[in-house]
Amino acid sequence: MIQVSQLQKTYMSGVRRKPTNALVHVSLHVECGEIFGIIGPNGAGKSTLLKSLLSLVRPNSGTIKLNGFFPSDLRCRQSLGYLPENPCLYDNLSVNDHLIFIARTANLKNPLAQQRIPEVLAMVGLDHVRHKQIRTFSKGMVQRAALACALFTQPEILILDEPMSGLDPLGRKMVTDIIRAYNDQGNTVLFCSHVLTDVERICDRIAIMDRGQLALTITPQELLDITPDVRGESPLETLFVRTVGAGGQQ
């Protein structure tokens, strides 16, 4: 379960320390076993929110709890998997090396890790390049390798930042299937994406963020009720344009 309350983050940029509000009083609650999608224009604060959950970014105020633990508590990261936006892995190492590292940090015994590695690599379709260096991978393969790293310890909470970026349609379908299968096991998925159709298709709840604020949270059913008569556009696209557009005009 993810609980975020009154989260605020201001970045100070430039020589004059000009403040930029990345998150403004963001509160959200994601239940266990839920797929929660966050959408929003560039600079809306989606990635900052996800990085705050992982303690990569320290919020100015507000509280976050993941399965009852604060993000800075190392115990909470045992049950967490993260796929960053534009993932970058160690070029000189293989995906096998990365997974062994993760197994070590998770205190996974070697026989168990050796059994799990082919499983997770087969899941993302990289079992044939297990020992190849990451430098030889295409962008899509790196994305899948990073997803394998995120899934390796079978975390209870999976946080994905733009999981479909750099993937071809087949790759996108594969990731969607993985997210669904993973969620079917009762795990929680929180992800942000620019691909509205994917979000609409797989999420139990969707939040729209705009300029650091959580503009609204909606379920797919509520979405159909609010925007029933749209021609040519997906209901989420209509709502997104309406919400973000309205915010932009203020």
Binding site: R77, N86, C88, H98, A146
Partner: peptide, 14 residues
């Protein structure tokens, strides 16, 4: 700089 650090710091490592 390249954010490879995310792979490490999102694990139970301070």
């Amino acid at each position: 700089e390249r954010r490879t650090i995310f792979t490490l710091l999102t694990r139970p490592i301070s």
